[in-house]
């Protein structure tokens, strides 16, 4: 039993030396959604608290995200999140891409797929209520529609 504990601890120590490559934090992004488009305050607040950690370059990493093996998970999820949708480069996207992302936001948020459960569990205040979800979905849909006023 003692040996097992020692072995586990050794593994824990060793994996600390494997680089997790957490995606780099960039605080100021001039092409960010909030910097280039008027987003209503309540929506902006919710996006910042519930989405921006993974879906922007402004990630703030809690202390435990530097500790392996949690660091591997955080690194993977943040990288994937930014790849799927990155609010920090919003202004560089074409109208078509914006429409796609806004459609995805509407669906994922209103169906409760996003934010991920593991995220809301660990980040107090990031959980979205039914009303929050409706508001975000309505904002995304209206914004997308306004891009194609014809």
């Amino acid at each position: 039993m003692n040996k097992l504990l020692v072995a586990l601890f050794a593994v824990f120590v060793i994996i600390q030396f494997i680089p997790a490559n957490l995606p780099v934090i960039v605080k100021k992004n001039r092409d960010d959604l909030m910097a280039t488009v008027h987003v209503p305050d309540n929506i902006a607040q919710m996006l910042k608290t519930s989405c921006y950690d993974c879906h922007s370059n402004e990630t703030s990493y809690p202390w435990y995200s530097y500790v392996a093996p949690v660091s591997f998970l955080v690194s993977h999820d943040t990288r994937e999140g930014r790849r799927k949708l990155n609010f920090s480069i919003w202004n560089n996207l074409s109208k078509v891409k914006k429409a796609k992302y806004l459609d995805n936001i509407t669906e994922e948020v209103s169906e409760g797929e996003m934010p991920m459960v593991i995220y809301t569990y660990l980040h107090s205040g990031s959980k979205l209520s039914e009303k929050d979800r409706e508001e975000i979905a309505a904002w995304a849909d209206n914004y997308a529609e306004s891009l194609f006023d014809d």
């Binding site: 078509v96 796609k100 459609d103 849909d141």
Partner: peptide
């Protein structure tokens, strides 16, 4: 679908 939705789906 409205235009913006249709475009979003097609791009997806």
């Amino acid at each position: 679908l409205k235009t913006h939705k249709l475009i979003g789906k097609l791009d997806n």
